[in-house]
Design a protein around this nucleic acid. Structure first.
Lengths: 216, 216
DNA sequence: CGATGATTTGACGAGCCTCAAGGTACGTGG
DNA sequence: CCACGTACCTTGAGGCTCGTCAAATCATCG
């Protein structure tokens, strides 16, 4: 896989990595830092579709479907591993095992989107936030980002609001409720989870394993 | 592809095809009729994740990830083309072009889920229903199911409500509004679209092409 | 024709959104 | 070092969208 690594890219917080509708010649794997995937409607409303964490693959959609259906931007400073798309694609096409990995990635992503859809469609505000905290935290654990129940979570409340289909104000008040219940706090870009089980219960989720992702 | 066809399966309306959490040895392609994909929470809430239409592939998730993340059931009588999973998988692995198709399918599905998430997360009730109508209708067109602006849509209002994260009652009232606005009607299992452009505008969508899907 | 399931309608209340203002932290320039 | 601007978080008040409850209408079917 290293053969197709073109280089590393360092990105400042707030910078765009990929634009909705674009067809970039590069693919990336996040190495450090976190970011956002989001779609924008014509009238400006924004849906955050997922958070980008280390080991995530970025740009697959453009590679497969021709153009990106969402934008990607950095929320913290990030380091990305850069691949050349055409090279990469030839490689994948010639190696069934790799094609399988790609499908796998896509399926995992789809699986997550289904869960997110369920969260936004069915859960109340407090359940959604508990769900998001829980998901993020479990993901962080599997990536080794958690120490003493704390992990970096360098987003704004507005980002979480846009991810969960809530207003900023209501998100803020709901975060406060979860803090008061002593389940989790989120301050200064760090998420501290005091009671994972309580979170999971409030979120109405069964404790399932975080799906492994092939690392490219 | 035909080599791996094990047979055809005829299913009555209301029957389960796949269960959430199961790991069926079969894969299907829908040939006739329509169905639902949905996830259920422990407390009974249900999120309809997508509608199954002819040419849709069913069971890919279980094939790739080990088990289904959602259930699938028939809403009308259906005819499915049945494949044996293990055979199928060997075949795909040995044929890069087919592997590509599978990846493509998965990517298209992911793309749709992103749109659905955006709809449920950002749009108001009437926008969501307009969006759903619009999506379904365009999809129907591309499948040749539409004649004189009508297409079969054999679902209950409860199904649409669960797809869009709305209550049954509010869905019903919102459907009535769209009917009053003379944009579309939905009665007796058929969707009649009177003004596609008005629907698209109400839905705040740009008119994009329906992604083609490889047929297996 | 009763029984079951889907659609429809009305009344009422709650959850969430919008508007508005104030607070805090941080960086920049005078 | 302080004034000022900016970005983000916090809090309060009021109102609208949407959910819940309830019951009526309608269709299908044994």
């Amino acid at each position: 896989m290293q053969r197709f690594k073109v280089g590393e890219m360092v990105i400042d917080a707030g910078a765009q990595i990929l634009m909705q509708g674009s067809n970039s010649p590069q693919l990336y794997t996040a190495l450090h830092g976190m970011g956002l995937r989001y779609k924008t409607l014509e009238d400006g409303r924004r849906q955050v579709v997922n958070f980008v964490m280390p080991a995530d693959f970025v740009g697959l959609q453009a590679a497969v479907m021709g153009e990106m259906a969402h934008s990607v931007e950095a929320s913290s400073n990030m380091v990305l591993c850069v691949f050349d798309r055409s090279e990469f694609w030839n490689f994948v096409k010639s190696q069934p095992a790799r094609a399988y990995d790609i499908t796998w990635l896509s399926a995992v992503e789809e699986h997550f989107m289904g869960e997110a859809l369920t969260a936004v469609g069915q859960r109340s505000a407090i359940e959604r936030i508990a769900w998001a905290y829980y998901k993020v935290f479990r993901r962080g654990e599997s990536l080794g980002l958690v120490s003493r129940s704390r992990m970096p979570f360098p987003f704004r409340q507005q980002d979480l609001a846009d991810a969960l289909g809530l207003s900023l104000v209501h998100t803020n008040k709901t975060i406060a409720k979860i803090r008061e219940r002593q389940m989790a706090t989120w301050e200064n870009g760090a998420l501290h989870v005091a009671d994972v089980d309580a979170l999971a219960k409030l979120a109405v989720t069964e404790r399932e394993d975080v799906p492994k992702r092939p690392f490219l």
